[in-house]
Design a protein around this nucleic acid. Structure first.
Length: 232
DNA sequence: ATGACGATTTACT
DNA sequence: GTAAATCGTCATA
């Protein structure tokens, strides 16, 4: 296959316009909502792309948010990436087994972030299935990237990617979808997942998703409203 | 140095 | 529905 054709296919499925710094340095809830429909891309080696459209996110509001790793201004070896400028990646390990990828928001030393919870696989599906490994898990689309741990495994993300600058890196970045793929998504919001420890914050409506999308990690409670229709 | 635990996933009853 | 897997991180000492 010619280089030109390859480029065209990648452009069509992945998109080429990279999201700029100014997108990320805004308030965290806005970024969490507007990341729905963008495309997360991992290029572990030149010309090899693993990419998926972001369909589910959660906002973590830093020092004021009991569910956030930086609650109360905590700064540790694990979470120091959250103190970088908006547009960097924060990847951490959980349960000794899985990784979760976040997009840092706001400015340096304003440690807030958006957790990427689910993708719709777009490019590199064979690689994703291989990364997911176990033949016991059928490489169905839903099982590939629905869930923060699953999507990191599928894309090959780990602590090695922690601190990556998504605005300048050739290996890990976010694009607007290709024009032909851009849609207006009705965005649903609701309670965040797996933070029962966080008291009142456990019911803050900081989880966002493309309503009814087949790659969402968990159903929303009935009554979750359409927050807005994304203009992208 | 030690102990409790987690922004999860999977298998099993 | 419940429980196991599995270990880095963090608070306490």
């Amino acid at each position: 296959m010619g280089e030109r054709l390859k480029r065209e296919i990648v452009d069509r499925q992945v998109g080429t316009r990279r999201v700029p710094r100014e997108f990320y340095t805004r308030d965290t809830i806005t970024v969490a909502q507007e990341l729905i429909g963008k495309v997360l891309v991992h290029q572990p080696e030149p010309g090899r792309f693993l990419a998926g459209m972001i369909v589910e996110t959660e906002a973590y509001l830093g020092v004021e948010d009991p569910a956030a790793h930086t609650f109360g201004g905590r700064k540790t070896a694990r979470n120091q990436s959250m103190y970088l400028a908006g547009g960097h990646a924060y990847v951490y390990q959980i349960y000794g087994l899985h990784f979760c990828v976040n997009v840092v928001t706001r400015n340096r030393n304003e440690p807030e972030a958006v957790l990427i919870r689910a993708l719709e696989p777009l490019h590199g599906l064979t690689d994703m299935a291989n990364n997911r490994g176990s033949p016991l898990v059928p490489p169905l689309l839903q099982h590939l990237t629905a869930g923060p741990g699953r999507l990191c495994q599928a894309l090959g993300l780990s602590r090695a990617q922690d601190g990556t600058d998504l605005v300048t890196s050739e290996k890990l970045f976010i694009t607007d979808a290709n024009k032909s793929r851009q849609k207006n998504f009705p965005v649903e919001c609701g309670e965040r997942i797996g933070i029962d420890f966080a008291g009142d914050a456990a019911i803050w409506p900081l989880r966002f998703a493309a309503k009814g999308h087949f790659c969402i990690s968990k159903p929303f409670k009935p009554g979750s409203d359409v927050a807005f229709a994304l203009q992208s």
